[in-house]
Amino acid sequence: MNKLKNKSILLLAVLAMAVGSMSACHSDDKEKKEQQEEEQQQDAVETPTVQIVPLTKGRLSSNITIPGELIPYQQVDLYAKTNSYVKKLLVDIGSEVHQGQLLAVLEAPEINSQLAAAQSRIKQFEAVYFASKATYDRLVSTSKTPGTVSQNDLEQAEAKKNADQANIDAAKSGLKEVSANLAYLEIRAPFDGVITSRNVNLGAYVGPGGKSTDPLFTIQDQGRLRLVVSVPEVYTGALSNKSEVNFTVRALPSEKFTAQVKRIAGALDEKLRAERLEMDVYNKDKKLLPHMFAEVSLPLPAGDSTYVVPKTAVATSTEKVFVIKVVDHKAVWVDVKKGLSNGDSIEIFGGDLKPDDKLVKAASDEIRNGSTLKY
Score class of each variant (00 low, 15 high):
117 A>V: 08
104 A>W: 00
286 K>A: 10
316 T>D: 05
244 E>W: 10
180 A>S: 14
72 P>E: 04
119 Q>M: 11
56 T>V: 13
42 Q>P: 09
78 L>K: 04
229 V>N: 07
151 Q>F: 05
110 E>R: 10
35 Q>P: 08
245 V>F: 05
261 V>C: 02
281 V>S: 00
33 K>P: 11
228 V>H: 03
264 I>P: 12
330 K>N: 05
214 D>K: 15
367 I>E: 00
232 P>I: 00
63 N>M: 09
171 A>G: 04
215 P>D: 01
133 K>N: 09
184 Y>H: 10
12 L>G: 14
14 V>M: 13
364 S>G: 13
350 G>N: 06
111 I>V: 05
28 D>M: 15
103 L>M: 09
231 V>G: 05
251 A>K: 12
57 K>F: 02
280 D>H: 09
60 L>G: 02
91 V>F: 09
24 A>T: 14
75 Q>W: 07
203 G>D: 02
361 K>R: 13
338 K>Y: 01
337 K>E: 13
341 S>I: 08
29 D>M: 12
118 A>R: 01
309 V>F: 01
228 V>P: 06
137 D>Y: 11
178 V>T: 11
170 A>F: 12
293 F>M: 12
295 E>I: 07
29 D>V: 12
117 A>R: 10
299 P>E: 00
203 G>R: 01
277 L>K: 02
294 A>E: 00
6 N>T: 15
205 Y>C: 06
146 P>A: 12
295 E>V: 08
124 Q>N: 08
165 Q>C: 03
296 V>M: 00
54 P>S: 09
360 V>L: 00
